[in-house]
């Protein structure tokens, strides 16, 4: 009976000594076994400058963002744009910038006075198209 008791005690002592030695070593246990302590990331050191990053242009980025699974109420780049105004757009003369009462039915250019009107009729068509494009009104009506 004595021999097994001794061996049991030894085992317990062993176990105790194990636990004693384990506690200080606990931080080392957290050191994950699959992590190589000497690992050096490829981006560090001389290779850094050689790394080429792909930059997508804005249209690609926006298109990619649209495809993400957004909820209808999520705020995104596309959803925060201010909505159209409730007030009607003001009309200014394309020639001088003054408030315009009239629109030339032929060229669709807005004008404020008779002098302007006489000038409009002398303008070549590429200039009138240019004036309209300043206020994004040059979309040809089909």
């Amino acid at each position: 009976m004595a021999a097994p008791l001794q061996s049991e005690q030894q085992e317990i002592e062993k176990a105790n000594s194990n636990t004693v030695t384990v506690t200080p070593a606990e931080p080392e246990v957290k050191q994950m076994i699959f992590k190589d302590p000497f690992f050096n990331h490829s981006c560090k050191g001389i290779a850094t400058n050689k790394k080429t990053r792909v930059w997508k242009n804005l249209r690609q980025i926006i298109a990619a963002e649209r495809l993400l699974p957004w909820q209808p109420n999520d705020a995104t780049y596309s959803s925060i744009e201010a909505p159209p105004s409730f007030k009607p757009a003001r009309k200014y003369s394309d020639i001088t910038g003054l408030p315009a009462k009239y629109t030339d039915p032929q060229t669709k250019i807005r004008y404020a006075s008779t002098e302007e009107f006489s000038r409009i009729r002398m303008l070549p068509s590429d200039i009138t198209a240019g004036y309209l494009s300043l206020r994004k009104a040059n979309i040809p009506v089909p």
């Binding site: 744009e81 159209p84 409730f86 007030k87 200014y92 910038g97 009104a137």
Partner: peptide, 22 residues
Amino acid sequence: SVPELLFHPSDIGLEEMGIPEA
């Protein structure tokens, strides 16, 4: 008339609210 665009983007055909309305 140029800074006015901040308050009335519709002046250049941009269909958005100006700053105060937004």
